[in-house]
Amino acid sequence: MGKAIVITSGKGGVGKTTTTANLGAGLAALGQRVALVDADIGLRNLDLFMGLENRVVYHLVDVVEGRTTWKKALVRDKRLENLVLLPSAQARDKDAVSPRQMQQLVQEIKQEYDFVLLDCPAGIEGGFKNAIAGADQAIVVVNPEVSSVRDADRVIGLLEAEEIGGISLIVNRLKPSMVKRGEMLAIKDIVDLLAIDLLGIVPEDEGIIIASNRGEPISLDQNTKAGQAFRNISRRLLGDDIPFIDWQDDDSFFSRLKKLFGVGS
């Protein structure tokens, strides 16, 4: 039986859906059977990130209300055949399903997939409770900002209260140059405060916006920093020991030139 992992953050706009799409593609590219579940009912986005919008026929609420089976509602990815998506409903809201129904659904999907990734809505109300109901583990996505870290702390407290097993952290949108200037929270300070395991660090990358708009997960793109980061996280989820890339390491042309000549650090 597979593992159900909820991707959550408390605060909106920190990259939950991006993370879900990219880890899903990353794990599937490593040969895992992966089901993505868009638990953000009413604000259906995950299908856009995956470029699968036109293929959506049934959604999560249809399954819960018995209009179809979960297997029929799944949308198969166009790139990876072992990756599927259970889309959310756009015209309904979070009250259309209950935590108990979600739990049951996730339990059934887990029987046939190695990973069930649940994309959680922002906030800590009903939608959040639905999304975490069936989860065995949680990934908390945080941006290196005070408000994001504060909300993540609150969410971790709620996850702990629900006795969700492994809770790990992804720091998303790190701007190495700002950290260097001391204008952004350092990774160490975030991890110290939240006191959970660090799963990965994803640097800010304009390519993510381009990739999302095109509906192509960036983790499948070999030439981007963010894609590399998501691939590394996917491998860590499988238990591989991958060292963290030091994104603070300046990678500009000038610094590479300096390195070449053995000047500087």
């Binding site: 504060r150 702390d153 405060l193």
Partner: peptide, 25 residues
């Protein structure tokens, strides 16, 4: 024996000892 996190409130009619951090909020 764990951190007290944002949004968590703890009342005790005696002493409180936290083995861990008490986070903002």
């Amino acid at each position: 024996e764990k951190p007290v996190r944002s949004g968590q409130q703890l009342y005790h009619p005696g002493h409180v000892i936290v083995i861990g951090d008490v986070n903002p909020g």
